[in-house]
Simulated assay, not measured.
Amino acid sequence: MNNIVGLSKIGLVRKQNEDRFFISDNICAVTDGMGGYRGGEIASTYAVDEIKEYLQSISTIDELSLVDAILHANTRIVNRVAREERLSGMGTTAVVVAKVDDKLLWASVGDSRLYIFRNDELTQITTDHSMVQQLLEAGEITKEEMFKHPQRNLLTRAVGVEEDLQVDSGTLSVKSGDRILLCTDGLSGYISDERIRQVLHDIEDNTEVLDALIDDVYNAGAGDNVTIIVGTI
């Protein structure tokens, strides 16, 4: 991937940033911790470190590798919680992406997202594992109502909460000029997909895209920490 950049900033409400990310060659990941003071920060950091270490320790990356990396992180976090009762309830989202030849591999748990921007269209690739996503799929709320729903922060699946974890994954064909965007709900929970699409349409430089989207989040009140990675295939 070319010109792949990331940025994580604390919001205007939170006292600490529980988001984490890494970018390494053609692999990147975003995590967003939960579990209150320290717990969420520990879970998200632990997950990023374990995922990165796992993927760097193997010679060949495929879709299953990304799933295994998240499962590896899940086991490590569950085991740590078992040893340290004060960390009970902590967990984290995780979305991991790797470019291999003309394929984009991904795996995810939680509500951090992967988008693809191609031919002026923005497509959400991952599906949120959240209460509001379930309500949306059941037809009980609209996409617009997700932004204000009182249960919008409740996850139905997270890394580090239970030993048995289902990880979503997939493989996409990509071509030169496609752009990817990974983010926590600090972006997607406050800024519409249409606005994200418009920024990617208007701005070619990925660092400037980050700055524009962060400005939008802060103008919207920055009720959560925000982490974004943008890269060009």
Rank of each mutant, 00 (worst) to 15 (best):
L135F: 11
S112T: 08
Y218H: 12
Q133I: 00
G89W: 06
T60E: 13
L122R: 08
Q16A: 01
L200W: 04
K99C: 07
I196G: 11
S65A: 15
S130H: 06
Q56P: 00
T31C: 15
I141F: 08
A158Y: 08
S112N: 02
D68V: 00
N3Q: 13
E140F: 05
L71S: 08
S176H: 12
V132P: 07
M1P: 04
G221C: 08
D168P: 00
E145G: 05
M34L: 15
G6S: 04
D49Y: 07
D211G: 02
L66R: 05
H149D: 13
M90S: 14
I180D: 00
S65P: 12
V217T: 15
M34G: 11
I116Y: 00
L114P: 06
G177K: 04
L87M: 14
T184V: 06
I203H: 07
V81N: 09
D202V: 03
L213Q: 02
T232N: 10
N225W: 02
C28D: 00
Q133F: 01
L187P: 10
T45V: 00
E53V: 07
N26C: 14
E137K: 14
G139A: 06
R118C: 04
V5Q: 13
S130D: 07
K99Q: 13
K148A: 11
E63D: 03
Y46K: 14
L114A: 04
P150G: 13
V226A: 11
I228F: 02
Y218D: 03
E208S: 11
M146T: 15
L200T: 04
R86V: 14
Q151R: 13
D202L: 09
R76Q: 15
T60H: 10
